[in-house]
Design a protein around this nucleic acid. Structure first.
Length: 789
DNA sequence: GGGAAGGTTCTACTA
DNA sequence: GAACCTTCCC
């Protein structure tokens, strides 16, 4: 280890960094903002910064707090750091916001007013808890859909608001606040916390408890936040609290340093509470002394970067940043117009085949789309062509029904008051406890102010005996599992719960049984990885004592993991089962099918953030789809769509394709979309149109018939750089429908409207009609019944 | 309790 | 168009 910075300047850690990266890594103490463009080596800078701080003895491992948004990012950081330095990264506070808050609350559960066995509700659990609550209080779920209530509660928590803090402007709001209040009481009674609560409660404990706050403020000398543009209000406040806010709420930056790393151009989560404004606030409120821009891109050729830069320059609210590369222009960005979504997929399959012939791995090809519904057509095309593919998204391992059932049994062993889990399994597998019995039990529980588990004795009759038997079963299981290993516990529960038996009887239960067996494996590898039984959580004391880094710290405060703060519950560690349940809630497993196979990657643009591929296809580049119709009305969300597009473009290393289609099946009906306005924002010089650049479908083209290339018949014409079937010449045939631009027509559903444009002939004929009450629509004349007025 | 039938919804999604 | 949820009926 280095003891002085002069020696450190030669550290091998700093080799191969560009000047900006080096400056970021070696920043002096103080708060700083790093604007890191896509592909600029952000993760590398973050991890090298931590390694450098440790190596130069400026901080000990315990003095670092590094926060990310995803488990994946946290894991990557730890892996890289572990490769740079011989430190026990597991013992460091590197993790997601929620993971770290969980860790914090486990250490201070008493102060946080939680049971030591508190369980975490995921989004599904939260929704069912809310539904249950609304039923209990007879809330009209037409007027207050449970999903909306959930949204409201989660949103309030993300803003750091308790029910009493929420400003209710309408009766509906007041009702929602009331539900929020009741929901909180229910969670508290049952000893469960949702994701928002993990954050909010940690924040409040820091805010309200001076010794705890001051302790952590002293401890975390270097705080690093990744993806800062995605932080919400509460997370921002949490960081502020950790870095220095007094009991009076005055913010006085401590002698710790906060480094925020982010890219305002990649902020795509405003819809779920992220505030890009946090970046500007941070600069102002944290007295930022250094700002560094990482603009050197190591990922893409310049045609791709030029496209990204040109596009994003149309956004007005930006901190300002331009990506550059030393690589040449590379291939042009290829643009394709298809006649239908089907043909678009077909073309893509052909193009991929060619790419494979060119020696590109399938796993280096990604198909990006704006919304999940678009994947179906593409999947079908890939499937029919026998091209292996992999879809991101969908249910993750720990979210599957059978897994959640098994976990519910395990959770009840840990916390008998968890009514959400109780309800999930009280009659699963079926054991003769119907809705009536459950209702009786709920009433009894409510009357006694107890959990359902504790209230079974109050229900009489046959219902009562069935319930008693169920509770007895759980209690016996709890007894039997004492002292067993995690693996044995789960096997016992799977066996005695009757889950396996139940799925055996089910014709389609084989997969579910397989998953349940996988759960045992997951538990097994969790135990070995986390090192339960061994002490992998805390850093070896000796290592710290010998480190020069610890010299500057208060010797009475060992910078160990936990317990370490005043009033932290001492000595108590989570049981392997409790730890596993937490793991299951916070890390719901892989979001993708089995890795390894050389398969084309399909995902939404959102899911692609942070990834990169040699070849990227951006599909469905159409008005109403991308930008999405729900985001086209106001400028704010349109700018978010543009950032989304920016993210999509910057995923590509070598080749980028964009495609749009004239027709598309959506929600069971054919739609005619204009090509995306984003095409007009790209530099013509970087593009190559594989089909003639279409003028036919721009809004200004009134009554223009044809002019677009059609590949009908030779579905998806393709050859390496052009297209196989020549474009059909513009159709000049006289329309047979007798409609003309400017005509007034009547539609059964939309009423009266004005024809503003006409397109195509025969079965393909369509008209654009402006309905005063329903807006502008494209209607296929072979389908829509229109009568001239 | 379970299946059939009918109704509803459909942007992005991490923890 | 399809996946999901609720309701109805045996």
């Amino acid at each position: 280890m280095f003891t002085d910075l002069a020696a450190a300047a030669d550290s091998p850690l700093l080799h191969n960094l560009n000047p900006e990266q080096r400056a970021a890594v070696t920043l002096p103490a103080g708060n700083a903002l790093i604007l890191a463009g896509a592909g600029s080596g952000k993760t590398r800078v973050l991890t090298t910064r931590i390694a450098w701080l440790l190596q130069t003895g400026q901080v000990s491992p315990g003095g670092i707090l590094a926060v990310t948004f995803t488990n994946k990012a946290a894991k990557e950081m730890m892996t890289r750091l572990g490769a740079m330095l011989p430190v026990n990264v597991r013992g460091m506070w590197i993790g997601t916001f929620h993971g770290l808050c969980n860790r914090f609350l486990r250490a201070h559960w008493k102060l946080a007013n939680l049971p030591s066995t508190f369980q975490i509700l995921d989004t599904q659990d939260q929704l069912s808890a809310i539904k249950r609550l609304m039923k209990q209080f007879n809330v009209d779920d037409e007027r207050f859909p449970a999903k909306q209530t959930q949204w409201f509660i989660a949103g309030a928590k993300e803003d750091g608001l308790r029910p009493r803090d929420v400003e209710a402007r309408s009766d509906d709001d007041r009702k929602k606040v009331e539900l929020y209040q009741l929901y909180e009481e229910q969670c508290q009674r049952e000893g469960v916390v949702d994701f928002g609560e993990l954050m909010l409660r940690s924040y409040e404990l820091l805010r309200d408890n001076d010794p705890v706050r001051e302790h952590y403020q002293r401890r975390f000398r270097h705080i690093l936040i990744d993806e800062f543009q995605d932080t919400n209000r509460l997370q921002y406040a949490w960081i502020k609290m950790l870095s220095g806010t007094t009991a009076e709420g005055r913010f006085t930056p401590n002698d710790n340093s906060v480094i925020a790393v982010g890219d305002d151009d990649q902020s795509i989560y405003a819809f779920r509470g992220a505030r890009v404004g946090n970046m500007a606030d941070f600069v102002r409120e944290f007295d930022v002394s250094h700002q560094i821009k990482l603009e050197q891109n190591y990922r893409s050729y310049s045609n791709i970067l030029d496209s990204a830069n040109a596009l994003i320059s149309h956004n007005t609210k930006r901190l300002g940043k331009n990506l550059r590369t030393d690589q040449g222009p590379g291939e042009p960005v290829r643009v394709y117009e298809a006649t239908s979504d089907f043909a678009e997929a077909q073309w893509m399959v052909e193009e991929m085949r060619q790419l494979v012939r060119d020696g590109i791995d399938r796993k280096e090809m990604a198909v990006l789309y704006r919304s999940n519904a678009q994947s179906r057509v593409i999947e079908t095309a890939l499937f029919n062509a026998a091209v292996p593919y992999r879809v991101y998204g969908g249910l993750r391992f720990f979210e599957r029904a059978e897994i959640k059932h098994a976990l519910a049994y395990l959770r009840l062993l840990e916390n008998k008051d968890d009514d959400t889990s109780f309800l999930r399994i009280v009659n699963f597998p079926p054991r003769g406890i119907g809705a009536r019995s459950i209702e009786q039990l709920q009433d009894a529980a409510r009357a006694a102010g107890r959990s359902m588990h504790d209230a079974v004795s109050a229900v009489g009759g046959k219902a009562g005996s069935n319930l008693t038997a169920f509770v007895a079963k759980i209690d016996v299981l709890r007894e039997q599992t004492q002292g067993l290993s995690l693996r044995e516990i789960i096997e016992l529960v799977l066996d005695h719960s009757g889950l396996i038996e139940h799925y055996k009887a089910d014709r389609e239960g084989a997969d579910r049984i397989e998953n349940l067996e996988e759960l045992v494996n997951a538990a097994e590898s969790f135990v070995t990885q986390e090192g339960f039984g061994r002490d992998a959580v805390a850093l070896p004391v000796d290592e710290l004592r010998q480190s020069p880094a610890s010299q500057g710290l208060d010797p009475n405060r060992p910078v160990l993991d936990e317990p370490l703060a005043p009033d932290a519950e001492t000595g108590e560690t989570l049981s392997p089962l409790a730890a596993f349940l937490t793991h299951a809630a916070l890390e719901s497993g892989d979001n993708q099918a089995q890795a390894g196979q050389d398969a084309v990657q399909l995902m939404t643009v959102h899911a692609a953030k942070g990834l990169e591929f040699d070849c990227v296809f951006i599909t469905g580049m159409e008005e109403g789809l991308f930008p999405h119709e729900n985001s086209m009305s106001d400028n704010e969300s349109l700018e978010e769509e543009r950032r989304l597009m920016y993210v999509a473009i910057t995923r590509a290393r070598q080749r980028l394709y964009m495609s749009h289609s004239q027709t598309r099946m959506l929600h069971g009906q054919t739609r005619y979309n204009l090509k995306s306005r984003f095409f007009d924002e790209l530099p013509e010089g970087a593009l190559k149109w594989l089909t003639p650049k279409n003028q036919g479908f721009t809004p200004s083209a009134f009554g223009y018939g044809g002019g677009y290339a059609t590949t009908r018949g030779g579905a998806g014409g393709f050859s390496k750089d052009s297209f196989a079937s020549p474009p059909v010449p513009p159709q000049k045939a006289a329309p047979s429908h007798g409609l003309r631009s400017g005509m007034q027509v009547f539609h059964n559903k939309f009423g009266e409207g004005t024809v503003t444009a006409l397109e195509g002939t025969g079965d393909d004929a369509r008209a654009q009609i402006n309905f005063p009450r329903h807006g502008i629509k494209w209607l296929a004349l072979s389908v829509a019944k229109l009568t001239p007025v």
